[in-house]
Design a protein around this nucleic acid. Structure first.
Lengths: 166, 166
DNA sequence: CAAACTACGTCAGCCTTGTTGACATTGTAA
DNA sequence: TTACAATGTCAACAAGGCTGACGTAGTTTG
């Protein structure tokens, strides 16, 4: 790492000004990142919190409530408020755990999967456009830096499990 | 999409799975991105909203309220609640505009500048570590993708003005 | 088996930060 | 002078965080 780029400019990318640029880039880009799903959710009585729950339930069907809590990093009271509306509206269903009956394994219903698709189509469209505009090299770098920016515990979640692994 | 396979490296980075990875990377990385300043702010009676205001006032001293509104993308009522506490606590001061006396040009006081430094030191430390771990090439890609992800209007803000330009 | 622990749900109350809508004040510009 | 612009402010509301306390099943352990 930190090998030189052209002659001696090696560490110029670590100047405070470059870092500030990176910080602001995160701020402005995150707004774009959430803008399209937010537009879909507004008026539906759902918010970003619902989107996050739906996303991760889709990504790992059969996930327990507590592993979802771990990924989202919120309290169970907060998550529960969201999950309750998703149950009531028939977007998510909870199946009692097979080996451990205390667990609720979370699954999207067809209706939930359909909303998930709408949301992630919108979000992916922007991501795809950005990826395409930037090119594969840039995408590689993008992911590398983001990964290095995560807390170690979150990095584990990120690289983590499809199902669950006790 | 999902056209040709390997031949060239061509489009494999645009698969839905790669895009999902990128989406989750944004989610987890943004948490890390805000974690350190949040820790400093907690207990100080300030939140992320105060941090953002302080950051942009520092970046462009003499900024008017309405251009700050434009950058932050919130309502004036919401911003005002934040600015009021910053005035009251003597972190920010407003000077009446020279040519247009309706304007309030915002500046950090010494006290404000000192909090700004604490916050941005913390945030830069993480960013610097990530940059260093990833290397200059990756950083270049990181910025390129983020920039492509912004809404055009935000991109203008991002690349934008130091002072203001009427 | 009984006791302790775990997974989950829920009630109640609080905080920050966003929103609308309405209205006032002070300048500037036509 | 009249219209518009920049700012502040009051009030009410919503989303989505938080803490603390308590309840109920089900599992594990001594």
């Amino acid at each position: 790492m930190a090998d030189n780029a052209s002659g001696s400019d090696s560490l110029l990318f670590l100047t405070d000004d470059q870092l500030r640029k990176g910080i602001e880039a995160m701020f402005f880009a995150y707004r774009g990142f959430t803008a399209d799903p937010d537009r879909i959710l507004e008026g539906l009585d759902y918010g970003r919190a619902h989107h996050r729950a739906i996303h991760f339930i889709h990504r790992a069907p059969g996930m327990t409530v507590s592993s979802l809590l771990g990924i989202l990093g919120v309290t169970k009271q907060s998550l529960n408020r969201v999950l309750r509306t998703l149950f009531d509206d028939g977007l998510v269903e909870a199946r009692v755990g097979k080996t451990d009956k205390r667990e609720r394994r979370l699954h999207l219903t067809d209706k939930g999967a359909s909303l998930e698709r709408a949301l992630s189509d919108a979000q992916r469209a922007r991501m795809r456009a950005a990826y395409r505009a930037a090119g594969p090299q840039a995408v590689q770098g993008f992911r590398t830096v983001l990964e290095a920016m995560m807390d170690p515990e979150m990095r584990r979640q990120y690289q983590g499990l499809r199902e669950d692994s006790p």
